[in-house]
């Protein structure tokens, strides 16, 4: 069976996470955490969520404030964001479904106990019995996806190729739990300019319309390239490649319809 392919920024980051049981919203994928397999290839171990994952991605005053306020109220020495292990993910579609009962967000708990429950008709049980469910066993990783995005990419000769705009993932990494493979990094999409996102228009010559938007975004990113994982030498502060710039694949050649080979709508994910 062909392994599923996804783009981290396009298909995973900022997607809604819903409960696999009843479909209620759980959180957003604020960040992803990666760890390295024995060959040194990074794969995704957990979804990070909460202000300590979103804050660093936002950056600036808003992001720092978000992190600082959260740390102020967390008693631990070195508080971390909430982690949802990737093995709980049962479906990746317009939303990402996770099984189990993830821990309730602290702010939700606080708002319920202090603001909503005291109001008549809120349907809340007496506050004293309202315990937060325990955390799911944590799997910590070594690298955050958001820190990989935006890194500078230099080729074998030290020439700047651009920056990482998205990370292509392939679901053939190590086993997570008993049933599914992890998504491992398969390659990097590198854009020459600091224009950031590709908005999904990197997908293929007949990718989504409208034609004008597609032409504009393609034009902005016309010298984008695709770097396979084999061409990556080291993942330092900059990503150093073992290949020369001219050996890199232009992004437009990459096209294999990401959507078509997955089927769509409720189609079970091939693991």
């Amino acid at each position: 069976m062909k392994a599923r392919e996804l783009h981290a920024n396009l298909h995973l980051l900022d997607r809604q996470v819903i409960s696999a049981d009843d479909g209620h919203p759980v959180c957003k994928i604020d960040d992803l955490e990666l760890t390295f397999d024995e060959k040194g290839c990074p794969y995704i171990v957990s979804i990070l969520t909460g202000p300590l994952a979103l804050g660093p991605r936002l950056g600036g005053l808003a992001g720092r404030l978000m992190v600082a306020v959260t740390e102020l109220f967390r008693p631990e020495e070195d508080p971390g964001p909430q982690r949802l292990p990737m093995r709980l993910v049962s479906d990746i579609n317009s939303a990402v479904a996770v099984g189990g009962t993830p821990q309730e967000a602290a702010l939700e708990h606080w708002a319920r106990v202090n603001l909503i429950a005291p109001l008549p008709g809120s349907g809340a049980a007496p506050v004293a019995h309202d315990r937060r469910p325990a955390r799911i066993g944590e799997v910590t990783g070594e690298l955050r996806m958001s820190t990989l995005l935006g890194r500078r990419v230099l080729d074998a000769g030290g020439r700047a190729v651009g920056q990482v705009a998205d990370v292509r993932l392939r679901q053939d990494g190590p086993m997570l739990g008993d049933v599914q493979h992890a998504f491992r990094v398969d390659g990097l999409i590198v854009v020459p300019r600091h224009t950031g996102r590709l908005f999904g228009y990197e997908r293929g010559p007949h990718g989504p319309g409208p034609a004008l938007v597609r032409a504009l975004i393609r034009g902005l990113h016309r010298d984008s390239r695709y770097v396979t994982w084999e061409q990556v030498d080291t993942l330092g502060e900059d990503v150093r490649l073992s290949a020369d710039m001219d050996a890199l694949l232009p992004l437009s050649d990459l096209y294999r319809p990401v959507s078509a080979d997955q089927g769509h709508e409720n189609g079970p994910t091939p693991a």
């Binding site: 209620h24 957003k28 967000a105 939700e108 708002a111 319920r112 909503i116 349907g123 809340a124």
Partner: peptide
């Protein structure tokens, strides 16, 4: 934006934020 539970189908206690 933040991915919270929202809406009027659930009781207010379940969509406190």
């Amino acid at each position: 934006y933040f991915g919270w539970q929202w809406g009027k189908l659930v009781r207010p206690r379940d969509a406190a934020r």
